[in-house]
């Protein structure tokens, strides 16, 4: 699933879909954290999952705000059409 997320970021050109792929990556991390935590019998992993969720929420808010601000300026969310984004 993590790899799917990576693939999504690399392949897709829609900023929102890229962003969703990143969320997918974070979730893959969460899953492995919970799994490790439950096998190790240690709660740190589960705690970390909470913080990852907080971060994901914060990033979602910021990311979507940035996308909206950009959309107002350029009327597009395709990264190909954003000229300084040559990665």
């Amino acid at each position: 699933m993590f790899c799917c997320g990576v693939l999504g970021v690399v392949v897709r050109r829609n900023a929102i879909v890229i962003f969703m792929s990143i969320e997918l990556m974070l979730n893959a991390v969460n899953l492995s954290l919970v799994a490790f935590s439950s096998f190790l019998g240690d709660s740190t992993g589960q705690m970390l999952v909470f913080f990852v969720m907080v971060v994901a929420a914060a990033e979602a808010a910021i990311g979507l705000a940035i996308i909206i601000a950009l959309f107002r300026n350029k009327q597009t969310v395709y990264v190909d059409e954003i000229n300084i984004l040559k990665w």
Partner: peptide, 13 residues
């Protein structure tokens, strides 16, 4: 805005 988006996407990645 563009630089913010680029920074954000790659940063989150």
């Amino acid at each position: 805005s563009e630089s913010a988006l680029k920074y954000f996407l790659l940063g989150a990645f």
